[in-house]
């Protein structure tokens, strides 16, 4: 039940998948919203603090997710054209990689002048790379572009899942919803 099998995903993998999905979309919306706030908005300071703290939490969840994937079997892919299979592998690789890059670039904005990154006042992550030429600006541009890329790819990923469910009528989506038995 907890672990993956050859047929379907276990509960841990399913929960981590949807948790990461929800947090990524939430952080994307929060990030776009917070940069438009004006100086006298109550959330002018709270929203970035929340964005940074949740971002670090997301990093921990991602590490857990990758670790869990490494010590679990992967369900067999549903049958499909070889090209689609290859695109799926590439898409999944990007969806694993991009969140790490988005988080790293965000970290480089906040720590550009050597300030540590505070996580809800509980602990802080020290700065490492600092003082690169226009570090905060470059890291900011990269952070935004990669975040847009990530959310766009996640959208395509979701459409592909719906295509599997409604057109191919296979178990791809159901497996990720924790259904024990694949439909046939």
């Amino acid at each position: 039940m907890w672990r993956n099998t050859e047929e379907t995903y276990g509960l841990i993998a399913v929960l981590l998948h949807w948790l990461v999905a929800a947090v990524v979309i939430g952080l994307f919306a929060l990030g776009l919203w917070m940069v438009e706030l004006t100086y006298y908005d109550t959330w002018y300071r709270r929203a970035p603090d929340l964005h940074k703290g949740v971002g670090v939490m997301l990093l921990l969840a991602l590490l857990l997710r990758v670790g869990w994937r490494l010590i679990n079997p992967m369900p067999r892919p549903e049958p499909g054209p070889p090209l689609e299979q290859r695109i799926a592998v590439l898409m999944h690789a990007l969806l694993y990689l991009l969140p790490f890059l988005v988080i790293a670039s965000g970290y480089l904005i906040s720590t550009a002048d050597g300030r540590p990154l505070d996580v809800f006042g509980l602990f802080s992550i020290p700065a490492t790379l600092t003082g690169l030429p226009s570090q905060a600006d470059l890291a900011g541009d990269i952070h935004l572009v990669l975040a847009i890329a990530l959310v766009s790819l996640a959208g395509v990923h979701a459409l592909a899942a719906l295509k599997h469910h409604f057109i191919d009528r296979d178990a791809t989506l159901l497996r990720m919803l924790g259904r024990r038995s694949a439909r046939s």
Partner: peptide, 15 residues
């Protein structure tokens, strides 16, 4: 672009 108020995030906003 060389504005420096001793806070990277604020300087980014000032730019």
């Amino acid at each position: 672009a060389s504005v420096d108020s001793n806070h990277a995030e604020r300087d980014k906003h000032l730019r």
